[in-house]
Write a protein that binds this DNA or RNA. Structure first.
Lengths: 220, 220
DNA sequence: GTCTATACCGAGATAGAC
DNA sequence: GTCTATCTCGGTATAGAC
């Protein structure tokens, strides 16, 4: 119980302290690259520049380390996405343009960073073996929840003809982000930025066509 | 070299012969359930009711068995989908209705059979570790290729306003099949048939709205 | 006291040898 | 079909170093 109040004191368990964070970073890197089963605790310890014993002291066992690291990373990913959404969907001036800019930034953030792809792939891969890895659809709910609120607002203003905002949000995500995700998941070939832009632009265009409000009156 | 000409003679390598098929079936079941790393050759041999030696005689090693079994299963899945597509899209009378029936049957085939979900998940999981597992987007190409042809025909007949049939096919798949896939991939909770029907119906409706041809003239 | 290093244990894996 | 060789893994224990 020496030096109470110092930073080193509140590291009951987990990633607190520089050592703990080095372990977490190394574990994340290897798990993302090799998956759960193919990653050994020895390798993690070596990658972190730490004794294996330290890994076990901090995280108990491999499974706990895996869950801890993945949950933290996933949470931070969701924070990033939330920021992007608020930036673009805070106040919408041009519907098609702002939705495109939003989806495009999300898409490029995923496409540019192979970590994101690997993270999603890893979560999907291990979901059957670690029930409760993600709090069950909490992921999609976070994303579509924000979009749903925005679409409901646009519908209220008469700028889009949407009766079920949640369903419409699902459609928007499906036509843009999920399409790129699906492309990257199967093969390993990365989607180029130009291709991502094409997909997003065309997806938002289709979305806007599907949900455009009826014209006020017959013209031409 | 006894009994030449009998079925047991032409088993150069692979799944020919009843033993080979038993091995393939057992391997598929265990790989789908447990993944590649968590499945042992011992378990496969036991499940197939054969000696482990027989497994190695037929398939060489674990990796080859995995690739062989997955490719065959994937091919057969694609054949199934092709059949469904031709059944519903051979000649389209009511666009919305026929597209819905098509997508719904595909969706229910995937939703009802957990094998399909597990297969897709397994391919995604192991894609980085077995380059060339699937011939790179050949999967999506098969599906969307068929749909593309159908949509091009409908566009030619003026029944849908489609300038890029391949892109439109991507949108249709994204709004229906891929949406259900995404739902099942993250969590493990299965999507109910009713939920699948709701998603497909709403997805096709949005698709038809996005690609409906312009009305011939102002009415009302 | 905590971290490092290393040796160690039992289990289970692939692959091959009778 | 069994049996064995060899390897790796998760996890622990034992030693010493700052």
């Amino acid at each position: 119980m020496a030096t109470p109040g110092t930073p080193t004191e509140r590291r009951a368990v987990g990633a607190a302290g520089p050592k703990g964070e080095a372990i977490a970073a190394a574990a994340l890197r290897l798990f993302l690259r090799d998956g759960y089963e193919r990653t050994s605790v020895d390798a993690i310890a070596a990658e972190a520049g730490v004794s294996k014993r330290t890994v076990y002291n901090r995280y108990g066992d491999k499974e706990n380390l895996f869950l801890s690291v993945l949950r933290d990373t996933y949470k931070s990913m969701m924070m990033t996405f939330r920021g992007i959404a608020e930036k673009h969907l805070g106040d919408v001036t041009d519907v098609r343009q702002d939705l495109t800019a939003f989806a495009l930034e999300v898409a490029l953030t995923m496409t540019t960073a192979p970590d994101r792809i690997a993270l999603v792939r890893l979560i999907m891969s291990e979901a059957p073996f670690f029930p409760g890895l993600i709090t069950a659809e909490q992921g999609a709910a976070t994303m579509t929840g924000i979009i749903t609120a925005c679409l409901a607002r646009l519908a209220g203003e008469g700028r889009l003809a949407i009766s079920d905002p949640a369903e419409a949000a699902g459609h928007l995500v499906a036509l843009t982000i999920n399409r790129i995700n699906a492309r990257t998941m199967f093969g390993v070939l990365p989607v180029s930025d130009a291709e991502a832009e094409r997909i997003v632009t065309s997806g938002v265009a289709a979305f806007v066509r599907a949900y455009r409000p009826a014209p006020p009156g017959p013209a031409a």
